[in-house]
Amino acid sequence: MATDIKDTAHAVDAAAVMGLLRTRPRLLALGEPTHGEDTLLDLRNELFRQLVEQEGYRTIAIESDCLMGLVVDDYVTSGTGTLDEVMQRGISHGWGTSAANRELVRWMRAYNEGRPASDRIRFAGFDGPLEITGAASPRQALTALHDYLSARVDADLLPCTAQTLDHLLGHDEPWTDPAVMMDPARSVGRSAEARQLRLVADDLAALLDEQAPHLIAVTSGDEWDRARLYGRTAVGLLRYHHWMADTTPARLARLVGVRDQMMARNLLAVAARGPALVHAHNSHLQREKSTMRMGGKPLEWWSAGALVSARLGDAYAFVATALGTIRHQGVDTPPPDTVEGLLYELPDAHYVIDTARLVTALGDTPPAPRVSPWFGYAPLDPAHVTGSDGLVFVKDARQG
């Protein structure tokens, strides 16, 4: 079996990845089984660089706040700001401190220097303005959308004035209170003002669609794309806050589902702009239902990848990443009867694996599921191997 498995493995490069795919996908997604490991991110950077240079991909989207990502996009396309400022203000979840993420942004800016706009690579965050402890105020998205429309359509068509909108939003602190995650009663997501804001957001987003011929004619493509991003984000955030205030057993499942729905809509918008590379946790990109335990309860939901794949078909491709060890987190050599354990016997540091041939090599006896001793790492589910278009295997994640 080991010889057969070795025959499924190739060096990690753009040619090996593209060789696994039936067609050139519009969205090519690379997953990771844990966050914050620069070993994985360095490999992502090199692979994405090759895919940009050799295959013509022109957007790189990562699991980061979609509104903050506009700061990074401005920097890599036009040099607005400094790299230090951009890494602090443009990437969420604390990942702006990652040396590998910094190198990605630096390289994107260097690549674009002197190139015509049509050939520049773009950056996108495709997560909502969300953290595990809560969500942002809808102020930024709603105000920006209202401002965009106010400058371009008759005031009588708007559902409210800017002053009324500001009054309904109130102070930002109640929206962003981290205690809400554990105490729904503290949420303002189902207040009278929040219910009114959901109607306002819906009306503003609808007006954006109704006035599309005029708006597209009088604004740039980037302005139009950003207005639609503000609309998606405002509607999604208010829905998320609504479920933050819920007290039923459905609360957590609805929250993770709404988050991935927001991710999916952002990815579809990125795909509409042209060929894009995507990087996020495997659980956000896989085609199967995602599962996790939160608050002691099992959750199940359709990931952004599953939602996008249902819409795009072969125009979406997903390559998962599996990992051998993260010794500095207590994740040691994988058991030999797991997928990771079998691949760990290969001699080199990382590979692209042909999953179709891997399934054949594994034979009729399915590998055992690996169990992680650390909550921050999600082992590969053997049942999901056939749902990915390929697999990147990294033997060891090294600290520092």
Score class of each variant (00 low, 15 high):
Glu103Gly: 08
Gly134Cys: 10
Gly128Ser: 03
Thr82His: 01
Asp84Asn: 12
Ser78Ala: 15
Met108Ile: 00
Phe126His: 14
Tyr111Trp: 08
His93Asn: 13
Glu103Phe: 06
Met108Gly: 11
Leu130Ile: 11
Glu113Gln: 14
Leu130Val: 13
Phe126Met: 12
Leu104Trp: 07
Val71Asn: 14
Val72Cys: 10
Pro138Ile: 03
Trp95Leu: 14
Gly125Tyr: 03
Asp73Ala: 02
Arg122Gly: 13
Tyr111Val: 01
Glu103Lys: 10
Arg102Asn: 12
Leu142His: 02
Arg115Thr: 02
Trp107Pro: 07
Asp74Glu: 07
Ala136Trp: 07
Gly90Ala: 10
Leu142Cys: 07
Leu142Gln: 02
Ser118Gln: 10
Glu103Trp: 05
Gly81Met: 09
Phe126Gly: 05
Val86Gln: 05
Pro116Leu: 13
Ile121Val: 15
Asn112Ala: 10
Leu142Ala: 07
Gly69Lys: 02
Thr77Cys: 15
Ala136Gln: 10
Leu70His: 06
Asp74Trp: 08
Leu130Pro: 01
Leu142Gly: 02
Glu85Ser: 10
Asp119Thr: 02
Ile132Glu: 13
Arg115Leu: 15
Phe126Leu: 12
Asn101Thr: 05
Thr97Trp: 05
Ala141Arg: 06
Met108His: 08
Arg89Cys: 00
Ala117Val: 08
Thr82Asn: 01
Ala144Val: 00
Thr77Ser: 15
Val76Thr: 01
Gly69Met: 09
Val76Asn: 02
Ala110Tyr: 03
Ser137Ala: 13
Arg109Tyr: 11
Gly128Ile: 01
Tyr75Gly: 03
Val105Leu: 04
Trp95His: 11
Tyr75Trp: 12
Gly69Asn: 03
Met87Thr: 01
Leu142Ser: 04
Phe126Pro: 04
Ser118Met: 11
Val86Cys: 04
Ile132Gln: 14
Leu104Pro: 05
Ser118Glu: 14
Pro138His: 12
Thr143Pro: 03
Asp73Trp: 00
Ile132Arg: 15
Glu131Ile: 08
Arg102Asp: 11
Thr82Glu: 06
Arg120Val: 06
Asp84Pro: 05
Leu130Glu: 05
Arg139Ala: 07
His93Lys: 09
Gly90His: 04
Leu70Ala: 14
Trp107Lys: 05
Tyr75Met: 11
Ser118Tyr: 09
Asp73Lys: 00
Ala110Ile: 00
Ala144His: 06
Ser137Asn: 05
Pro129Cys: 11
Ala124Gly: 04
Gly114His: 05
Gly134Arg: 09
Ala100Phe: 00
Gly125Ala: 13
Gly96Ala: 03
Asp127Pro: 10
Met87Lys: 02
Ala99Leu: 10
Ser98Tyr: 00
Ala100Asn: 00
Asp73Phe: 01
Val71His: 15
Arg139Ile: 02
Ser92Ala: 08
Tyr75Pro: 06
Thr133Glu: 09
Thr133Leu: 15
Gly96Ser: 01
Arg120Asn: 10
Ala110Leu: 10
Ile132Trp: 15
Ser92Val: 02
Ser137Tyr: 12
Gly125Ser: 13
Thr133Asn: 06
Ser98Phe: 01
Leu70Gln: 05
Thr133Lys: 08
Asn112Gly: 12
